[in-house]
């Protein structure tokens, strides 16, 4: 009897550890760099409220770092039709309750690409002393077009997944443009000013990521680990191992941007 109990406890213990080991997560990181000569965009011409906005503004659509690191590349989990989304890591449940901030500052949108899961609150605020309006055009979500006076804000949650990022603009200042990614699965990221991105705690296994940039749309050709990957919809396949998965430097041809 005593042996049986110890045996059962032992099995339970083993089962428990094995169980823990089964739910393994990996974090994917990488850095996007542009290969070749980057042709910077012409500055935006300010046609309204010049007293505050100035006469010209740098176009935030294409921003590269000192070594051609590409900022504002968006990556998100891509699912083929019929595929089920992987259950997200518990940490994302708390993150979904946080608010995403989309700000109008200095007559420009910040951030250039905002990420939100379906149902997550997005707070649109105007931090300029002039009025702005937030015109967001969705496909699955209804659009919105709200006038926000200086120092004002409003909160909105998008409840449907958007296949591609939504355009957010301002009709009073038509040069202002940014993008909002709305996905059901929280596995998505945007590269920072050094081209680095991090998607945390993906379930171990094969996954597809769709890569997108505001200037080119989906990035159809990237060089990853020496291999050139081409996909019409900018989808790459990665194999996530437990722990850190550094994809290294991912190059994008300047001509393709």
């Amino acid at each position: 009897m005593k042996h049986a109990t110890i045996g059962m406890l032992f099995l339970l213990f083993v089962g428990f550890t094995v169980d823990q080991a089964a739910a393994q997560w990996g974090t994917v990181t990488g850095q996007f760099v542009v290969k070749g000569n980057v042709v910077l965009l012409k500055p935006l011409v300010v046609t309204k409220d010049n007293a505050f906005c100035g006469n010209q503004l740098n176009d935030p659509l294409l921003t590269v770092g000192p070594k051609n690191e590409l900022q504002d590349v968006a990556l998100w989990l891509y699912l083929d039709r019929g595929d089920k989304a992987p259950t997200p890591h518990p940490m994302y449940a708390a993150l979904a309750k946080k608010q995403v901030d989309v700000v109008n500052r200095g007559c420009l949108y910040e951030p250039q690409v905002a990420l939100a899961v379906t149902g997550q609150n997005v707070k649109f605020s105007n931090q300029d002393p002039i009025a702005h309006n937030f015109k967001v055009e969705g496909f699955a979500n209804g659009g919105l077009n709200n006038l926000v006076p200086a120092a004002g804000n409003f909160v909105h949650a998008f409840n449907d997944e958007e296949r591609y990022p939504m355009n957010a603009g301002c009709t009073i200042h038509p040069w202002m443009k940014s993008f909002i990614v709305v996905r059901e699965s929280p596995y998505m990221a945007v590269t920072d000013n050094l081209g680095n991105f991090k998607i945390e705690n993906l379930p171990v296994g094969k996954h597809k990521l769709q890569i997108w940039h505001g200037k080119s749309g989906v990035i159809k050709e990237v060089t990853l680990g020496g291999k050139t990957l081409k996909d019409r919809k900018g989808v790459i396949e990665i194999n996530v191992q437990p722990g850190q998965n550094n994809l290294g430097v991912i190059t994008v041809d300047a001509a393709k941007l």
Binding site: F134, G143, N145, N146, L147, F154
Partner: peptide, 13 residues
């Protein structure tokens, strides 16, 4: 509500 399809925004403030 603004005017949908045009540029007039909603004056929700």
């Amino acid at each position: 509500n603004g005017i949908e399809g045009a540029k007039m925004p909603a004056a929700q403030q």
